[in-house]
């Protein structure tokens, strides 16, 4: 039961984007469509899960003083793996996400979970935590990307169902801020009602 709770806490209660406000740069920068958001979310999920695995396994061998630099090296290695893999197998997505793939390194969620969770917990709970948090992050990105895609180009996951151009503003930078603002508002509203 507690493992299940550990897995699902990232979806709503401790959603990294809507509740913790962590790692917002890629959230805004890559969600021009639902597909791009999903790509970014899954790439981050991979890095998050794998770095949690390694950190939880070697946490006892790392001296406390060089903890953070070691975590950064572990994370950067997995980001490089993702970067090269995406460049080889999904070149279109790689171009669309651009700069934000190497920037997964400085995504506060990844380092945050390594430091706050994986360095204190066992292997299994850390894996579940990383995977759940990653999925919560992906969920937020797909929601934001979906809303922006529907409003901005009248399609969802590339399937067009409204004729015409849509409100281009929502694909551009201001739309990202405004849609995220409203989504967080909705989240706070729901939370205050249930509490």
């Amino acid at each position: 039961m507690s493992q299940l709770k550990n897995f699902t806490k990232g979806f709503v209660q401790e959603n990294p984007v809507f509740v913790l406000f962590l790692g917002l740069c890629p959230v805004l920068g890559t969600t021009t469509s639902a597909i791009n958001g999903m790509g970014m979310g899954l790439a981050t999920t991979f890095v998050l899960t794998m770095s949690n695995v390694i950190v939880s396994l070697i946490k006892n061998f790392i001296p406390d003083k060089v903890r953070i630099p070691s975590f950064i090296v572990i994370i950067a290695s997995f980001v490089t793996i993702v970067e090269l893999t995406m460049q080889a197998f999904t070149p279109v997505l790689f171009d669309a996400l651009g700069l934000f793939i190497p920037l997964i390194v400085v995504n506060c969620i990844v380092l945050g979970r390594a430091e706050a969770f994986a360095s204190k917990n066992t292997f299994l709970t850390s894996v579940i935590d990383g995977f759940g948090m990653g999925l919560g992050f992906t969920l937020a990105l797909v929601m934001l990307g979906g809303v922006r895609e529907i409003l901005g180009s009248g399609s969802l996951f590339g399937i067009k169902f409204i004729q015409g151009d849509g409100m281009i503003l929502f694909v551009l930078a201001p739309g990202a801020f405004i849609v995220l603002g409203y989504l967080i508002m909705l989240m706070q509203k729901l939370k205050s009602k249930s509490a």
Partner: peptide, 13 residues
């Protein structure tokens, strides 16, 4: 935070 994002959106505009 929500109102901050909306303000940021207007600033971006």
């Amino acid at each position: 935070v929500p109102i901050a994002f909306i303000v940021a959106g207007l600033l971006a505009m």
